[in-house]
């Protein structure tokens, strides 16, 4: 998995790991938009450039085994990585692909990742990640979930 440095086009390998208890101090609303401490009971993952401790993106997941589904509760990139002047590209994509990998590893052909973005930004997720629409919920399933995993898998 890699992210792209927008200024140079260089790619940087990243790792996605569970957030440590000690990380929560650094996860301020000013930089990461949400109250991440409130997510401690869920699986929260951080994306960092390989070998660095700098957290560039975060995702909070809920496993719903009865429905073979992983629900994305919260997803964000750090403040300096969004908008026109962002430093790195593909942070959100890698985090969604990570959720897709967890779903495929657990549920194979039944795997599903869901999220429920605001109406204004739903189009972006539908177009960028080939998601299906059901009411207010967007989801990605087989075969699209396999293609998404491959798209971000550069290992």
């Amino acid at each position: 998995m890699v992210i792209i440095e927008t200024a140079t086009g260089n790619s940087h390998p990243v790792e996605i790991k569970l957030v440590d208890d000690s990380d929560y101090q650094k996860l301020t609303k000013a930089r990461y938009f949400f109250d991440w401490k409130a997510e401690k009971q869920f699986e929260v993952y951080k994306l960092c450039i390989f070998g660095s401790n700098e957290i560039l993106g975060l995702i909070s997941l809920e496993r719903i085994p009865d429905e073979w589904r992983i629900h994305i509760r919260l997803l964000t990139v750090s403040v300096e990585n969004q908008g026109k002047h962002k430093l790195f590209d593909n942070i959100a994509g890698n985090l969604i692909a990570h959720a897709a990998k967890i779903a495929v590893a657990a549920y194979a052909e039944l795997a599903c990742v869901s999220l429920r973005p605001k109406t204004e930004i739903a189009k972006h997720y539908i177009e960028t990640y080939n998601m299906q629409v059901t009411g207010l919920t967007l989801s990605i399933e087989v075969p699209e979930i396999l293609n998404l995993t491959n798209r971000f898998d550069h290992d």
Partner: peptide, 14 residues
């Protein structure tokens, strides 16, 4: 404006 930017992220909590 950034809260409505796709890369701001998603709050999907019910």
């Amino acid at each position: 404006d950034s809260n409505n930017h796709p890369e701001f992220g998603v709050d999907s909590r019910y």
